[in-house]
């Protein structure tokens, strides 16, 4: 009897420390989820009543008495497209060069170190540089183009790194197989390596878009805060050279200088939905282009 309890007591002692550990782990896990859920719920409750059709399709105007973020949505889209059109090919190209052409050595290490450092720099420093260089030196002023050029610098490392990681996971045997059939380097890259790395490239692009959508500091003093909507479709092009505030910039302004918290939370809700859609889109797209699936 005694001996029996002795063993089971020893047994139980271990179990207790296990259980405590489990509780702690579950606690930390649920805490992070709860905080996230709380923020989302809070923002939704505060903001959802501001979001309606006119909020999404009109521009805030004292004269007309309308409240809306259509101009900011358009500005955000223009900045995303402008930035990605330039950043994606350059980023992917840089990754291809680093992974497939450059001889490993000091130069490559330096570039890798630079990209890593670049991605860790606070965005406001990019903004400062963008304002001075693109805005002042190149004379682009406060404009969507200045904002985009600044953001390109910010998201390039993201795309390059993701593409590079994807290229690294392409098995060496694919390269050998292609070369063994007489394929040249560029042909191999085009037909085997890029398709195989598509999910990684898409992930990089979507992360970059997420970063653009979420960026405010760097855009405040490069792209400005105008919220007017171009009157015609043709007006979209000159818009590139004009000031324009994105949704995040508008959120910041609404919540600070304008003191309009209804609009601020309304923008926040739209942003949250957008981020959710982007994440969903990433998963779908990456799965669609996953050539390694065995169907």
């Amino acid at each position: 009897m005694n001996e029996h309890t002795g063993i089971s007591a020893g047994f139980r002692k271990n179990r207790v420390s296990d259980i405590i550990l489990y509780i702690l782990i579950y606690l930390s896990a649920s805490l992070s989820v709860i905080i996230l859920a709380a923020i989302i719920i809070y923002v939704f409750f505060k903001g959802i009543h501001s979001v309606n059709l006119s909020f999404l399709t009109s521009v805030t105007s004292v004269l007309k008495g309308t409240v809306g973020i259509a101009g900011n949505i358009v500005n955000t889209l223009i900045i995303i497209i402008l930035t990605m059109i330039i950043a994606t090919p350059v980023g992917v190209g840089a990754a291809i060069y680093l992974n497939e052409y450059a001889k490993p050595g000091k130069l490559v290490n330096l570039i890798l170190f630079a990209t890593e450092t670049l991605s860790g720099i606070p965005s406001i420093i990019f903004g400062l540089f963008g304002m001075m260089f693109f805005g002042q030196t190149l004379g682009l002023g406060y404009s969507l183009l200045t904002g985009s050029l600044t953001l390109i610098l910010m998201v390039l490392p993201l795309i390059t790194r993701n593409t590079q990681e994807a290229l690294k996971t392409v098995p060496e045997s694919y390269r050998q197989g292609a070369v063994g059939l007489g394929a040249g380097k560029w042909y191999t890259i085009r037909t085997i390596l890029l398709p195989s790395s598509m999910p990684g490239i898409i992930t990089g692009v979507i992360l970059a878009i997420g970063r653009i959508v979420g960026e405010s500091a760097a855009l405040l003093f490069t792209a400005g805060s105008a919220k007017a909507l171009p009157k015609t479709i043709a007006g979209l092009f000159p818009k590139i050279f004009q000031s324009g505030g994105t949704m995040t910039v508008q959120l910041y302004l609404s919540a600070t200088s304008e003191g309009d918290f209804d609009t601020a939370f309304g923008v926040a809700v739209v942003l949250l939905i957008l981020v959710f859609l982007i994440n969903l889109g990433t998963k779908k797209l990456a799965a669609k282009y996953d050539v390694t699936r065995k169907k």
Binding site: Y174, Q176, P195
Partner: peptide, 10 residues
């Protein structure tokens, strides 16, 4: 023809 079968992912 290589040691490990290496069909391309297509």
């Amino acid at each position: 023809v290589f040691q490990q079968p290496n069909p391309f992912p297509m």
